[in-house]
Design a protein around this nucleic acid. Structure first.
Length: 505
RNA sequence: GUCUUGUUAGCUCAGCUGGUAGAGCACGUCACUUUUAAUGAUGUGGCCGAUGGUUCGAAUCCAUCACAGGACACCA
């Protein structure tokens, strides 16, 4: 039952009173001619004037009331629009007869969205303000705003009711403005390099391009299941086969897995594919990309992140096997022996699933002993072929691939490789994944014969990369939960007990 | 999925070893024409997350459930 709360009832009554007195509580007759930011900029000279005011100027601003200080025959009102906050001085004798006492003081309150006209002046306390000569209700808020000083801090309310979070916490708006800029800069960076932005299906007949569990949905017309995509990779590579030489896609992926500070079931990535290039070129363009972002976002290259300082002038490059010993402290003599790795992991109280192959075990060592130590940007290269089913083998050593993952602050930010374009090898890799699936690995890559056929027509040598946008934004905004960089993070629904019982009947 | 902590007024939070629910802000009323979380006076406001149990008596103890935060596991 909505609106049963007594505060809401009170406010609805005020809204009705306004209507009766001829003031539409939901007027759209708005005449704003100045944002708050502009008002503050344009009138910054008022402070130097002898009178501290200029009654010849007039502005109409609007915004939500954030603070209200009523002092008898005059009041101060803080309003906020998207651009900033402004103090309004409202005095009884400057408004229409009776308006101040009968309308303003009784029916206008914190949370309402109003429009005010008046002239700029500077108060005795030195604050540039607007001296109101007219005030109009634009939107009555019937729910009271959270407490003015503490705001909302309850994370559950902040995520479930993001609008309240955005009203109360201006720094949250900044985070999402930065997110928007990152995406826009990313798009511009790749477009300027000659990449073509494309859109590939979100609903896949086979969920490929990554090792992950998909969401399933049903297409009634065809009577078949579809999978929400876990990655766009195989479709983007089909476009390279088709003759596009540089493509990228910025969009959502969906993975049916756990949720925590760095995982949301839907997340945003950019994937880009670049013909006639190798993963070495990707390392170069990745460094350029970060330089570009830092320059346009005005960020220091010694970036604070929580207690860390991340040095973005210090990109490190190291092969995976080497990192195990030099960074992870794993004895070099065990890193290519399955039994010794298992014994070593067990000795460190790490339990491993039985039947893992050498590459998977090396991956375990990396995840366990190296990943969290990679603070400055680090390209880990030369991944084992067993855990890289879509990457090209190294010519020098067919057991490893021409691949890297970029780690920053202990987290994977990007995954990239020279693409496997040998259709026969790709087929046998998929078959290897099928064996892993039969052995119980439910995240092994699916067989995609249509993709194999595409490769069989010839895909130019290509390098491709994916970057997790959410985690990147976390780094750049100094946020430590993915929920703080998603406007509407995934939350469990709140079960309404009454409603539930009805459904069961 | 496991462990752990939390859930009390619209918001931010108190509430000790069980004894009939508290503050600040907000809101109502009154005073106040330059305040800065305005101030002073006064009042209203609660199924103490849900359901069971123990008890003469439960916000408080126990169990189950729901949701959230954190950690771990899996993964990007």
């Amino acid at each position: 039952m909505p609106f049963k709360n007594k505060f809401i009832q009170q406010r609805i009554e005020k809204s009705e009173t306004l209507r009766k007195e001829g003031f539409n509580p939901y007027s759209n007759d708005s005449h704003r001619n100045c944002t708050i930011k502009k008002f503050l900029n344009v009138n910054s000279d008022i402070a130097e004037m002898e009178e501290k005011r200029d009654e010849n100027r007039n502005y109409i601003v609007s915004g939500r009331i954030k603070l209200l200080r009523i002092m008898g025959k005059a009041s101060f009102v803080k309003i906020e629009d998207e651009s900033g906050t402004l103090q309004i001085y409202v005095a009884r004798d400057n408004l229409a007869e009776g308006f101040y006492n009968d309308v303003f003081k009784k029916n206008i309150e914190v949370g309402d969205i109003i429009e005010i006209s008046g002239y700029p002046f500077v108060t005795g306390q030195g604050e540039l303000s607007l001296h109101a000569d007219n005030l109009k209700m634009l939107t009555k808020a019937i729910s009271p705003l959270p407490e003015k000083f503490h705001g909302v801090t309850d994370k559950e309310i902040r995520y479930r009711k993001r609008y309240l979070d955005l009203i109360m916490n201006s720094e949250v708006r900044k985070t999402f403005q930065t997110r928007s800029k990152v995406i826009s800069l990313t798009r511009r960076f790749f477009e300027d390099k000659g990449f073509l932005e494309v859109e590939t299906p979100m609903m896949h007949p086979i969920a490929g391009g990554a090792n992950a569990k998909p969401f399933v949905t049903h297409h009634n017309a065809l009577g078949i299941n579809r999978f929400l995509r876990i990655a766009p990779e195989l479709y983007l590579k089909r476009l390279i086969v088709g003759g596009f030489e540089a493509v990228f896609e910025i969009n959502r992926n969906f993975r049916n897995e756990g949720m925590d500070a760095t995982h949301n079931p839907e997340f945003t990535s950019i994937e880009f594919y670049w013909a006639y290039k190798t993963y070495k070129d990707l390392i170069k363009i990745t460094k350029e990309y970060f330089e570009y972002l830092f320059e346009h976002l005005n960020l220091p290259t010694l970036l604070p992140y929580g207690d860390l300082k991340i040095n973005f002038d210090n990109f490190v490059e190291i092969p995976l096997i080497e990192s195990l010993t030099t960074i992870g402290g794993v004895p070099a003599e065990i890193t290519s022996d399955k039994e010794k790795i298992v014994a070593y992991l067990n000795s460190k109280n790490v339990t491993v699933k039985p039947g893992l192959n050498l590459g998977q075990l090396q991956g375990e060592l990396f995840d366990e002993f190296v990943e969290e130590k990679l603070i400055d940007p680090t390209f880990i290269t030369e991944y084992p072929v067993e855990i890289s089913p879509l990457a090209r083998r190294s010519d020098a050593n067919p057991e490893i691939t021409e691949r890297f993952e970029l780690f920053i602050a202990g987290r994977e930010i990007a995954n990239a490789f020279s693409e496997l374009n040998d259709p026969v090898d790709q087929l046998s890799r998929f078959e290897g994944q099928m064996d892993a699936k039969d052995a119980g690995d439910d995240e092994a890559h699916e067989m995609d014969l249509d993709f194999i056929e595409a490769l069989s027509y010839g895909m130019a040598p290509t390098a491709g990369q994916g970057i997790g946008i959410d985690r990147l934004v976390m780094l750049l905004t100094n946020e430590h939960s993915i929920r703080d960089v998603l406007l509407f993070p995934a939350m469990k629904p709140i079960i309404n007990e009454e409603h539930n019982q009805e459904e069961e009947n």
